[in-house]
């Protein structure tokens, strides 16, 4: 009976030993899976962080746009809540993989060309590019012409001594005489 018990015990202990080994094995696998999951999570988090647009990237685009509400304020320095929302919109668009041009296009479609620091080179906006150089050119031409006129201006005419009228000559003679008397 004892033998049988021993056998039984041995027989019973074997599955226990197997179970312990299996548990250890399963635990190791679980640790490995957990480790790999953590590793993957940290990698994906790192890659997400690296793909998230930085403030500098957002501001590089924002400074080429103007606040649609507050006049003449570039979006990168505008302190209002509305401007913060627009900067966040730029960040969202950058995160979606939109290019700078596509973001400008989006802002133009939403808020009009007035938000663009550089107006589009089309239609009526061409005047903004043409008028300043034409005015500068006209100014240069006028300046050049004026300067050449100033150069051509004759020097004061020298009057010869013998051209002085006689009456004035007498007057001078008298003056000199008076001066001599005073001395």
């Amino acid at each position: 009976m004892f033998e049988s018990w021993k056998v039984k015990m041995n027989h019973q202990s074997r599955p226990t030993l197997h179970a312990s080994r299996n548990t250890q094995h399963a635990t190791r696998i679980a640790y490995l899976v957990l480790f790999l999951a953590l590793l993957f999570a940290s990698f994906s988090s790192a890659s997400a962080q690296s793909s998230a647009p930085t403030d500098d990237e957002v501001n590089a685009i924002a400074r080429q746009l103007y606040c649609p509400v507050c006049e003449s304020t570039p979006l990168d320095v505008c302190p209002t809540d509305a401007c913060k929302e627009w900067r966040e919109q730029i960040r969202t668009l950058l995160a979606e993989g939109k290019t700078e041009e596509e973001i400008f296009e989006y802002f133009e479609q939403q808020y009009g060309a007035r938000v663009l620091a550089e107006p589009p080179r089309e239609g009526f906006f061409w005047l903004m590019y043409l008028i300043p150089p034409v005015i500068i050119l006209a100014g240069v031409v006028i300046l050049f012409r004026s300067m050449s006129d100033w150069r051509k201006k004759p020097a004061p005419v020298e009057v010869e001594a013998d051209e002085i009228p006689a009456a004035k000559d007498d007057y001078l003679a008298r003056m000199e005489e008076e001066l001599k008397k005073q001395k």
């Binding site: 509305a82 929302e85 966040e88 808020y111």
Partner: peptide, 11 residues
């Protein structure tokens, strides 16, 4: 009819 003036879609 509500009309959102110079607003972001998220806002």
């Amino acid at each position: 009819v509500g009309v959102a003036y110079v607003d972001t879609p998220a806002g």
